[in-house]
Nucleic acid binder design. Structure first.
Lengths: 97, 97
DNA sequence: CAGGATCCCGTCGGATACTG
DNA sequence: CAGTATCCGACGGGATCCTG
């Protein structure tokens, strides 16, 4: 739980999915997350070995992220958690939107 | 995630398991949790509909908890999360003990 | 026995502005 | 563009003591 916890980690992993995706694109997919938090969470996930950070030193600066094998193996588990939540808390989720 | 998150909720659910168990017994299974936190988490779980609170007004006061159907259905999911954690973070978990 | 009251502190996450 | 620096409030969780 300490690994997949936090407000944003599961969402970030889900946004990355099977793609290789840039920092800015992630920020755009999740407008509600601030720069600071996004970069910190990405750093955490990298240290945990769930995502790769791919930096190309060309200009404009361009950093991309994708899931490691470990990260990929986590996705089905997250999906089960989400399914459980959807079946048992559909009403509460609606009221949050 | 907001439902199963927090430091103690998954542990508490696991301690209850398929049993009907008293407050004091839970406290004894988890010596590290304080009275205040345990009672608050139990209240949360009850409001979420994951556990039942069974009070018998005899003396000495006796309150027991067990899982609702919803809580029971959550257990396999928690177990999958735990299995994932064990397979990918065995070393880190050892170092925590 | 079960759990509320109070106090306390660290961390999490948000807002904003700045930089290589 | 991809972050870092700074500041800040809110919340989670622990310690201790008290009560019906």
């Amino acid at each position: 739980m300490s690994i997949i916890g936090g407000k944003w980690k599961p969402i970030i992993l889900n946004c990355i999915g099977d793609k290789t995706i840039r920092f800015g694109k992630l920020n755009q997919l999740m407008p509600a997350i601030s720069n600071k938090v996004l970069s910190k969470e990405l750093k955490d996930l990298e240290l945990l070995g769930l995502i790769n950070r791919l930096e190309s030193d060309e200009l404009p600066q361009r950093v991309e992220y994708n899931l490691t094998d470990s990260g990929i193996s986590l996705m089905p588990v997250l999906i089960e958690v989400a399914n459980w939540g959807n079946s048992h808390f559909a009403k509460q989720i609606e009221s949050k939107l």
